[in-house]
Design a protein around this nucleic acid. Sequence first.
DNA 1: GTTGGCACTCGTTAGGATCGAGTGCCAACG
DNA 2: CGTTGGCACTCGATCCTAACGAGTGCCAAC
Lengths: 332, 332
Amino acid sequence: MDERKAAILRSVVEEYIETAQPVGSGRVARSSGLAVSPATVRNEMTALEQEGYLHQPHTSAGRIPTDKGYRFFVDGMVGPATLASGQRQLVQRFFASAHGALEEMLQDTSRLLSSLTDYAAVVVGPPHEETGIRSVQLVGLAPRTALIVAVLANGTVEKATVDLADDLGDDLIGAVSVHLSASLVGRTLSDLPSPPSTGDGVLDDVCTAAVAALGKAHDGEPEQVYVGGAANVAAAFDAVDSVRRVLATLEQQYVVVTLLKDVVDRGLSVAIGTEHGLEPLSECSLIVAPYEVEGEQAGTVGVLGPTRMHYPEALAAVALVSRRLGKRLSEG
Amino acid sequence: MDERKAAILRSVVEEYIETAQPVGSGRVARSSGLAVSPATVRNEMTALEQEGYLHQPHTSAGRIPTDKGYRFFVDGMVGPATLASGQRQLVQRFFASAHGALEEMLQDTSRLLSSLTDYAAVVVGPPHEETGIRSVQLVGLAPRTALIVAVLANGTVEKATVDLADDLGDDLIGAVSVHLSASLVGRTLSDLPSPPSTGDGVLDDVCTAAVAALGKAHDGEPEQVYVGGAANVAAAFDAVDSVRRVLATLEQQYVVVTLLKDVVDRGLSVAIGTEHGLEPLSECSLIVAPYEVEGEQAGTVGVLGPTRMHYPEALAAVALVSRRLGKRLSEG
DNA sequence: GTTGGCACTCGTTAGGATCGAGTGCCAACG
DNA sequence: CGTTGGCACTCGATCCTAACGAGTGCCAAC
């Protein structure tokens, strides 16, 4: 692919992202900056179509980029755009004043990202399984029900209800608490030991049940995902049915988490159209970036928009937010 | 309003809900079961229009119910429909097998309700402020940061980060925990006492800070709200802009909570169109029902659909789900 | 009070003409 | 040989008109 063809392709993509209208040779000749006639552009465009970068809705219409065309555009980008200073300030201020619980911060981050890009935004939280347990406690709720509560190092709380065979007194529950605390603190949810025997059968049984409940509650559960700006999906498409499909997919937390993980694992930061293989989202592109907490990859932030999204700006926003989020979470 | 006019109005509403097309006199004459001619129906319909129950999009089109027309229809309903046995079973099974944390159960309930009705569903959780505290604990997270964790009687966990002036040792944190526990257990979040002095200045300071943090974190915060089936909004309207407006409103948790509270407080179970005063939702109707846990009104479930929603079925679903949810939560 | 008849309204649909953006092809040009 | 202007052609979009028909309001008759 020679430089001129690339320039033409870029021009088509840019125009189409801006106008959502098929782009004709005349428009490209004017806007691409190339000093060539529309006829020359036409010749190149037929070639680009044959190579699969462009698509013609019908004879005598302009061209529309294919997924492959967007891919070339994205790969050939000089890099993410620089965000407007107002937007950078917004991010700055958000993370400067971000406070309180991890959960709220992640939810607010997804809202921030969606308001930066005008697309739907997704934030996947850090895996609970790998975070150190700071405290464990058993709390009696009802005569035969207790709650095992584990506080993790990142400030999140995991809990599970434990059904008890007998009605235990507060003293016994307290004893169990102490024993559990001694054996579980410092471990992780994915690495729960069976607590050493105390010699007391009842006490041991409760301990085992509690640990089992805690382990089971978060076994195979995906990480928490926070979706922000879902309403932007409605603005991005004008077919109400496309909107429905995308929203229905976004509601399935498990699917979303898997999707983001998958894309990140494949080392991509942009998945265009069908590249991620999720059929209901074939009209969408997804931009993702992992964020790191204390050097460890902790979670993912992402943006979901139409394939004709503003890639440079969205990439910049996602990159900035993921970096700042990681930094913010690292300082504790 | 005589009986025949009421029957005609009912017929118009039912037809319009079914077809989404303006309803003409001929159709009503056929479907209403009244033995009258279209001409008679026409006479009545002009009267109904002058009284504000019906609206004509343009001369020589059929009639569409106004909000007032829907209101009359709903008020005159013999009662909620009986749900299909398949749906009743679904609810049955859901609550029989519902398990685990309150939060997940409420989220799943909203999904259940949305799948029953094909509208968006909303569930507002019980207020945390009024639930008894079962356990309080201070956990050190970082050198100068701790987390105060309160377990409530309904199995939910409240927490707040506490910034410490000094780096406290585990022993001191433990002491604070014990002291906090002694003074806070049994109280509620809305009724936090200032812990009695221990004679130790540092210890007292930390206690006060922790209690303040806990109180502040949930002061004026609305109850948690769970939205399910938001994608159904896209199916209910065919103007993509209406969809956007409604979704954008649903994303504002505070607005949604206030809306539901407001409607319930006014003793309504149905708010039609502009009745709730929330402009972006003027094309929607809202069906709500409070649910009671142990005799106390605890929260609200609701359904948001287009004004031309299937009121009898939706009412039945909301009523059933709220009743069963309350029952399920009461048994602990 | 009810009804059939009737003229009228007005959105919807269908057909046809026109427009114009855009194309492919080709011959000419540097 | 790549580039370009010219040109005929395509085909969706736009506009117009006509015909249709569902529905209305009104009125006279029952």
